[in-house]
Design a protein around this nucleic acid. Sequence first.
DNA 1: AGACATCAAACTGCATGCAATTGGTGCGCT
DNA 2: AGCGCACCAATTGCATGCAGTTTGATGTCT
Lengths: 252, 252
Amino acid sequence: MAARATSKTSESSDKVSVICRALRRAIIEQALEPGAKLPEDSLGERFGVSRTIARHALGQLAAEGLVELRRNRIAVVATPSWQEARDAFDIRIELERLVVRQLAGKLTKAQIAELNAHVDAEDRARGGTDAVSIRLATEFHILLAQMTNSPILVRYVSEVAYRCCLTLSLYSRPHSTECAINEHRAIISALAKGDEAKVMDLMHHHLDSVANRALVAPTPQRGRDLLDILAPYADDAASDRVVKMPKLARRG
Amino acid sequence: MAARATSKTSESSDKVSVICRALRRAIIEQALEPGAKLPEDSLGERFGVSRTIARHALGQLAAEGLVELRRNRIAVVATPSWQEARDAFDIRIELERLVVRQLAGKLTKAQIAELNAHVDAEDRARGGTDAVSIRLATEFHILLAQMTNSPILVRYVSEVAYRCCLTLSLYSRPHSTECAINEHRAIISALAKGDEAKVMDLMHHHLDSVANRALVAPTPQRGRDLLDILAPYADDAASDRVVKMPKLARRG
DNA sequence: AGACATCAAACTGCATGCAATTGGTGCGCT
DNA sequence: AGCGCACCAATTGCATGCAGTTTGATGTCT
């Protein structure tokens, strides 16, 4: 109860947050792969706003870690290193354990129904594209976070979940979502039973196995090749950068 | 070893991040109290930049939860509710437990020396103003986070620590920092010994007691009076806002 | 005197314009 | 051919200008 107004937190005005939402979604559905360029002009044109607004939106997304901004350079979708990805999952595990700890035994019937409905949707989406499955799986976790009624927790869980999505598209192979769906169901039922310890454990292992399915080996050779491989070497050289490459993903 | 470049994460260019840093510092040192107005013009003038830049900086700080942006209204320093403050501390506890878990037994001699030096500085600052003590105490935690070499963890710990600072200036009385300093020392020595379980516990109780010293009672009557008290009542009215009232606490 | 309507100043929302930097292409030199 | 340099298009960095909204104040009516 007491549905909070929620969105007042950050997200300055309207146009900016529209762009942010669109880009976030495009990123987690992998329509925009890591490394994809995001020129201010194109964005502005695409969304019917000026560069000023597009720029502002990019700033917000950079603050969330979804895009990388380099001075005087075109913004790109973030390309987290393998280690950063692992770190993100570690943080996510702690945060989501906190979520289910707060939620265990405190959900209303309506909320449980909502969660089940969401997982049903995940189930139905199994036939569709990976992109949709991944998005729905992520949204399940965000939905849980929202039920804590803690705007801060929602924000952090959302951010870190999006970042984890990003890594999935970098390091993960085709993806298998079925087990994840079962794990979601198990979490819901443990939440309903109010078994705090168990649900924390379930969440822990759920996320851990997602991470392990994704981050198979600490070898970044696959993923966005050269870029990552060379990144560490350019670490103390002031310029980080894009070694020259014929095309590198742009969408008109 | 392998000191990362770190700051490439967000913080778009230069001027913007200068303003962000300045404001963050002003906020955690309580030079800017919660509720303080931050007009774009004044900021721009103060820092010798245009409104565009000031605006961008405010956007970043809003994304961090330090300022609140309301459409067509002057931005203000965030005024977290008591519940939000409690939530922030809960998250902080989990994040910092993760920090010390990763750090236990893995610190170099030099790092331990750096930590001790920092606490010495905290000690010396005991005679000074509260503002400096609070800042140093916060920076101790951020310093710890930085030693994990995990940019994401650094970012989240920093943000949440700043938010907790904000809270302190809202709900806490004059403040007593001595015990906190001792607790910092205890954490360092447990880290050096490599006692993972113990250091996690120390950190947990340290933060918990800081939170409890600060968030004494769930009565927001003290703090930024009327504003908070009335906030929940205006909750479902679409317009968030200020019920109309003769004066309602503002600072010029 | 108190409350309400009206108006001006202040401020934000946003687009556009100009200077500066970057990356790339093609030319000339070796 | 290979390498380097100069020039150009593309793009960002930032300031300014204008329109719309909010705030607060003045004036008027009861």
